[in-house]
Simulated assay, not measured.
Amino acid sequence: MAKDARGRELPKGIRQRDNGTFEGRVAVDGKRVSVYGNTVTEVKKKIAETKYKMEHGIYVDQCNISFDEWFNTWLEEYKKNSVKSGTVFSYKNYYKYYIKDELGMRKLRDLRGEHIQHLYNKLKQDGIATSTIKIVSAVLSGCMKQALKNGLIERNPVPLAILPKAGVKKQSRVLTQEEQTLFLKYAKAKDSYLYNFFALALRTGMRNGELRGLKYSDIDKKKMVIHVVRTLKYEEGRGLYEDTPKTASSTRDIPLTEDMLQIIENQKKFWGISKIINKNEYVFHQGDKRPISRDCVQSEIDRVIALIREDGINFERFTCHGFRHTFATRAIESGMQPQTLKTILGHSTLSMTMDLYSHVLPSTKAEEMEAISGAFKIS
Score class of each variant (00 low, 15 high):
228 V>H: 05
149 K>T: 02
258 E>Q: 14
229 V>G: 09
273 I>Q: 08
209 G>W: 11
255 P>L: 06
251 T>H: 13
219 I>K: 05
285 H>F: 00
280 N>Y: 11
195 Y>W: 07
165 K>D: 09
216 Y>R: 01
153 I>Y: 06
284 F>G: 00
181 T>S: 14
223 K>F: 12
252 R>N: 11
231 T>R: 11
259 D>Y: 13
262 Q>T: 14
286 Q>I: 02
155 R>S: 10
185 K>S: 10
177 Q>P: 02
263 I>D: 02
195 Y>V: 05
163 L>M: 10
239 G>T: 06
228 V>W: 03
183 F>N: 02
159 P>N: 05
167 G>N: 13
242 E>L: 15
222 K>Y: 14
152 L>A: 02
280 N>K: 13
233 K>A: 13
191 D>F: 04
209 G>A: 12
159 P>R: 04
181 T>K: 15
213 G>R: 00
159 P>L: 11
265 E>T: 12
289 K>I: 01
227 H>R: 14
282 Y>N: 10
245 P>H: 10
220 D>H: 05
192 S>E: 03
288 D>N: 15
285 H>W: 01
161 A>P: 02
175 L>K: 01
240 L>W: 02
161 A>I: 07
151 G>T: 10
235 E>S: 12
287 G>I: 06
206 M>K: 06
237 G>Y: 11
202 L>V: 01
188 K>W: 07
159 P>A: 09
278 N>V: 04
173 R>K: 15
162 I>E: 14
251 T>A: 14
204 T>A: 01
151 G>S: 10
215 K>A: 11
268 K>A: 12
160 L>H: 03
203 R>S: 12
157 P>D: 08
236 E>M: 11
